[in-house]
Design a binder for these strands. Structure first.
Lengths: 145, 145
DNA sequence: AATGAAATTACGCTGCG
DNA sequence: CGCAGCGTAATTTCATT
């Protein structure tokens, strides 16, 4: 569906590195005019290749220093929608991945400290049809870009 | 340590929702002048609360439709640095989390298709001192914002 | 120390060729 | 796609509390 050529990919890479980069900067990078770059970026937003822009935050500096992944298992009758809805209401849940096989879901959590983590896991366990959890504590992380 | 007040938090929320939001928009939101908003955002970048800005991409629309998490275990002699360095050289690796306990690391992967996934897992397994892997295939995901 | 207003520069945006 | 023109935003400076 989307025709995204090599120039578009270069623009994407540039915007992933710095989402506030100006069109004139990118125009120099790819050797096009400012207007052409804007049209390409606008188009990629329209077709949904670019879904948005966001600020990257150092959560540890805001006092949310603990990061964890929790694997969750549910009863056979539990639907995906319920899983996600339960989790999204907790601000500590950064992301929910539904999984093929075992476990049923993987949740990315951010909390202030260990007792906070325990509290959130307890909430998740109590919320409905959870049959088991296993939590992986993150010691360090690296993310592309 | 960063003093981040309630106004700063409102600006952070605003910029996480839309990283290209203008200072004048945010100024209206928080009831300050454009200059004051810019100073606050600049300051949060300086102290490292805001680490950058980035474009959000729909990788499926670019043909990278498969997402997975791979848990990895290593020999006792393997250092964290080696683990991360191995992974970061593969463009398919989106993120690496080193973990307390079992497993030793969790890798977030994006690939074009299943055979591509197999190929990457093979590469990871062969690269050094891996003693075991377990891969969780992502069926669906939800991310805050 | 942080703010607002004013002035300058740069950028975003649109229409036309 | 490039060019050109106009409007808007970013950025710096200065003055104020």
């Amino acid at each position: 569906m989307p025709e995204v050529d090599e120039t578009d990919h270069r623009l994407l890479r540039s915007l992933r590195e710095d989402g506030r980069r100006t069109y004139s900067e990118m125009a120099k990078e790819v050797g096009l005019s400012v207007a052409a770059v804007k049209r390409r970026v606008d188009r990629m937003r329209e077709i949904g290749v670019i879904t948005g822009f966001t600020a990257q935050i150092d959560h540890a500096k805001l006092g949310w220093g603990i990061e964890a992944f929790t694997e969750m298992r549910f009863t056979g009758t539990t639907g995906v929608r319920e899983i996600v809805q339960t989790a999204t209401q907790l601000p500590e849940v950064q992301a929910v991945f539904t999984i093929a096989g075992d476990p049923d879901a993987l949740m990315h959590l951010r909390v202030r400290d260990i007792s906070h983590l325990q509290q959130i896991i307890d909430k998740l366990r109590r919320s409905g049809t959870v049959t088991g959890t296993k939590t992986l504590m993150v010691l360090g992380s690296w993310t592309r870009d």
